[in-house]
């Protein structure tokens, strides 16, 4: 071995960690960068992220479009009905990568590494969810683009279109906080893959995402109408059409959605940070 003295604490460089909220932002940004780099180097995840929503748009539009389109109010194409729904669907399903990613970090000891460092306790979670939110925004963009190809339009103008994408991404991001709890509680990645995904099927499908609620049995309509996914999908549709449906106002549609998003984060973010401290 050559005489290369380990540069340890003999010659410390002078640097200082930020404190308080600035520390959370500083550390969260670095962790988010790490997660995004990781994403770009995981081809399987990119394909899952991008191809799946495209398939949903194309399959549903051409396979179910004829049948379901007939049940829609006159003047609304199935593409116009479908795209806002697929967007919510894709972002809700996309949130499951938060639980899988966290479980993976836990299993591989990376969470231990982060927890032994003098960094903000919430940074690992905040960083991951920031990265996941960026990913969800990319998915939303892909869906709008493919949607345009099959006939979807922002009838109410670009501004409302941007609001529509923003609302969907915000809801998906709130769902990531729910998923973070699952990722921290399950023992391994395999369980996370199931536990983070399976419950999303009823949540997404018992809603107005793919079919109008009034086509369901009455008892199921009660569930579907109060499902936050329905509330978000309906708001999305109104935003894409440029006006709320008869009997609703922007306020009556947006308020419950805003409450759901804020409520989910307010409940599940502190719970996740608490579990993170304890794992």
């Amino acid at each position: 071995m050559t005489d290369l003295r380990l540069p340890t604490h003999a010659s410390p460089d002078s640097y200082q960690r930020p404190t308080g909220l600035r520390a959370v932002v500083h550390d969260g940004r670095i962790v988010a960068w790490r997660n995004l780099v990781q994403l770009t180097r995981t081809p399987g995840l990119i394909i899952f992220t991008l191809i799946q929503p495209v398939m949903f748009v194309v399959l549903f539009n051409y396979v179910f479009g004829g049948a379901i389109g007939a049940a829609l109010p006159p003047g609304i194409s199935y593409a116009q009905f479908l795209i806002p729904g697929v967007m919510v669907q894709a972002l809700v399903f996309g949130s499951s990568t938060t639980s899988v990613g966290l479980a993976d970090d836990l299993q591989k000891g990376i969470v231990d590494r982060f927890r032994s460092l003098p960094i903000a306790r919430s940074a690992v979670l905040a960083g991951r969810i920031t990265a996941d939110t960026v990913r969800l925004a990319v998915v939303a963009f892909v869906i709008v683009t493919v949607g345009m190809l099959v006939g979807f339009r922002f009838e109410g103008g670009l501004l409302l279109g941007i609001v529509m994408v923003f609302v969907a991404v915000a809801f998906g991001s709130a769902m990531c906080w729910v998923q973070a709890n699952i990722g921290l509680l399950v023992p391994n990645v395999e369980t996370a893959q199931t536990a983070g995904f399976v419950w999303l099927f009823p949540v997404v499908f018992i809603s107005s995402v793919f079919t109008p609620v009034q086509t369901m049995p009455t008892w199921l309509q009660v569930v579907a109408r109060n499902n936050p996914v329905t509330l978000v999908a309906n708001l999305q549709r109104a935003l894409s059409l440029g006006e709320p449906p008869a009997g609703s106002t922007w306020a009556s549609m947006a308020t419950p959605v805003a409450l759901w998003i804020v409520g989910l984060v307010a409940v599940f973010a502190p719970l996740a940070v608490r579990s993170y401290r304890k794992v």
Binding site: Y15, V31, W33, R41, T42, F114, L117, A123
Partner: peptide
């Protein structure tokens, strides 16, 4: 992190330390 390079892993921890 297996997806990061050796240098990136070291760099990330250095940045996290301030």
């Amino acid at each position: 992190d297996e997806k990061l390079t050796g240098a990136e892993n070291l760099h990330m921890v250095g940045r996290l330390l301030g």
